[in-house]
Nucleic acid binder design. Sequence first.
DNA 1: TACCAGGAGAGCG
DNA 2: CGCTCTCATGGT
Length: 285
Amino acid sequence: MRRKRFDVVPYDLAATLTSGQAFRWRCRDDGWEGVVQGRWVRLQSARYGIQAEVMPPVRNWMWLSDYLQIDENLAGVIATFPDDEPMRAAVAACRGLRLLRQDPWECLASFILSSTKQIVQIRQIIAVLCERYGEPVIAPKYCEPSFAFPSPERIAAAGESELRACKMGFRAPNLLAASRMIAGGEVVLPRLATLPVDAARAELLRLPGVGRKIADCVLLFACGFQDAFPVDVWVAKALHRLYFPGRRVTLEQLRRFAAAHFGPFAGYAQQYLFHYTRVHAKLKS
DNA sequence: TACCAGGAGAGCG
DNA sequence: CGCTCTCATGGT
């Protein structure tokens, strides 16, 4: 086992890993276990930040510090948020919540599977998908077998009925067709980060099952476009309740408001609103 | 049981 | 345009 200490404060691991941006982290013994770049990882929060454990060999830690966005200046990000009551409340309630920088394919596939599903269910579908099609990953003996996220080629080689057997329902044909377009080089995901945001979004929108919301999730969570602002049912509810109480507002109006109101790190602000709203909904019920 | 879930896409007036 | 319906499945 190789250990690494990341000095980064504040960093709320639990909130970050369970706030609906990534779906494969599991809590065990006061730590979090997952797979990043095909490597098994265990993370634990500490006073100084994060303690990481991986299996040897390890050449460097860039792949992990990049994924965790260790070098992001969180205070600087938050300083760009609008100084209004909703954002103050969200920031106060979600101290240390951060955005990850994920693999574009895993992110895209995960969000194709996310539509009209609760986060618990999304996690289940993805777990089955990885068990059936992912390459085995070397993990400590005490762990049950773990798997990498399956490649687009591997999913493209599956049949629609096989995928439906993973409980993904009507999302199966979308995931299959998208996999085939990626595997065939029709859309090149690693290139998206080098494009202007509108061009990158247009590329994603060519994929079946990918509309504005899912495209924005991939742009934000995987391509580094920190002003991308995915509006899902939760964020729409939050924006409506907090900024347009009692008024009728369309989805497009909410997007335009968000683009104008939340600044260069709008996507970060969105994650705070999303998590804040969900935690509060949970407390109220 | 009924309703809803980090939507997309087609069909309609 | 803007609205409605369907798609599949399971949690609460």
